[in-house]
């Protein structure tokens, strides 16, 4: 079965979903990501869905779950690149994904993750004095 690759950049994990996933694949990704957050001690997770033509309630639930699980594991999840048509459809479907942070693209997503981590760790603290 095909697998979605998870890349590690610094303390962030990057997933770019490029295929129309069937449900088992989405569940596998959810498992893989949770494991990888723990093993790599990642603080941020970025999921790029700019290639996705649709997000139905199943994928929506997966995104929600990943965001919630990463929060428990002290990592922040940002979903980036959602297409306008997909966003409109999701809202009409009734899925607001309120627990998920979003950004327009990968660049903005990284900046947002940095900002959130800095806020959590106390802004203005120099890197070398930061715990961890």
């Amino acid at each position: 079965m095909e697998q979605i690759p998870i890349l590690k950049i610094g303390d962030c994990l990057l997933v770019s979903i490029q295929v129309d996933m069937h449900d088992r694949m989405a569940l596998a990704l959810q498992d893989d990501l949770t494991n990888k957050i723990v093993t790599s001690r990642a603080r941020g997770v970025m999921i790029d869905i700019s290639a996705l033509e649709i997000v139905d309630s199943f994928i929506g639930r997966m995104l929600n779950n990943i965001a919630a699980m990463s929060r428990v594991l002290d990592a922040v999840t940002v979903v980036v690149g959602m297409r306008p048509a997909v966003a409109i459809t999701l809202v009409e479907l009734g899925l607001a994904l309120t627990g998920v942070r979003t950004a327009l693209n990968v660049d903005r997503g990284l900046a947002l993750i940095r900002k959130i981590i800095d806020e959590q760790d106390g802004a203005g603290v120099l890197d070398e004095y930061r715990e961890n």
């Binding site: 959602m82 306008p84 966003a87 409109i88 999701l90 950004a103 327009l104 903005r108």
Partner: peptide, 12 residues
């Protein structure tokens, strides 16, 4: 309202 929500999902 839908537009505002959709924009948020896109990150704006």
């Amino acid at each position: 309202l839908k537009t505002v929500e959709a924009a948020r999902l896109m990150g704006a």
